[in-house]
């Protein structure tokens, strides 16, 4: 569970890796954020998906950027993580046709009081400008009202999922 959460969003950099006995079951640890290859190469992988979790900070950057992992901000850390999770689930649920490959790749940045949501949406199924603008207005306003801070969407558009593909396995 924790592994999935870590894989999707709030990745915390591993600072001290002390040796310990792994008490969770063996398969829990090794399957997160790893994708099985298919027979007909239909599994599309983005760069983010293709790089393994141990490459975070090496070959791929974080999806969330906040300062609440520093020692002075321990109080706000759970709040921030929860806010991130709310935003991710909301985006994934609100743009079901437009989201790219499961909708995990949403970048959340915080600049002062404002929360910026970046990422890519695709319009291969149907491009309806009015619908999209309505949804943008709704999501920005709704998330602002929920989180009590301005939320701005900086999502960019891509024609098909193939434009963000790294390889197919």
């Amino acid at each position: 569970m924790l592994g999935q959460v870590l894989a999707r969003g709030g990745r915390l950099p591993c600072v001290d890796c002390a040796r310990a006995i792994a008490t969770s079951s063996a398969d829990m640890v090794n399957r997160a954020a790893k994708y099985r290859s298919t027979r007909d190469r239909s599994q599309l992988l983005t760069y983010d998906m293709a790089m393994r979790p141990h490459h975070i900070g090496v070959k791929k950057a974080w999806l969330t950027w906040h300062s609440q992992n520093l020692e002075e901000f321990r109080q706000q850390q759970p709040v921030t993580l929860t806010q991130d999770e709310i935003v991710r689930r909301f985006i994934r649920g609100f743009f079901p046709q437009h989201v790219v490959v499961h909708g995990n790749e949403v970048v959340i940045k915080r600049r002062g009081n404002v929360l910026f949501v970046s990422g890519f949406l695709q319009y291969s199924k149907r491009l309806d400008h009015r619908r999209i603008y309505w949804m943008f207005g709704f999501v920005e306003e709704f998330l602002s009202l929920v989180l009590k801070q301005p939320v701005k969407l900086e999502l960019a558009f891509v024609e098909t999922e193939d434009d963000v593909a790294y390889n197919y396995i």
């Binding site: 983010d48 791929k60 950027w65 970048v107 990422g119 891509v158």
Partner: peptide
């Protein structure tokens, strides 16, 4: 983005590149 074999893979384009956004 990282290319393990630069001679086998073309450089990444900037459109649709999530790393640049992150």
């Amino acid at each position: 983005s990282y290319r393990r074999h630069p001679d086998k893979r073309a450089p990444f384009k900037k459109y649709g590149n999530l790393e640049l956004v992150k």
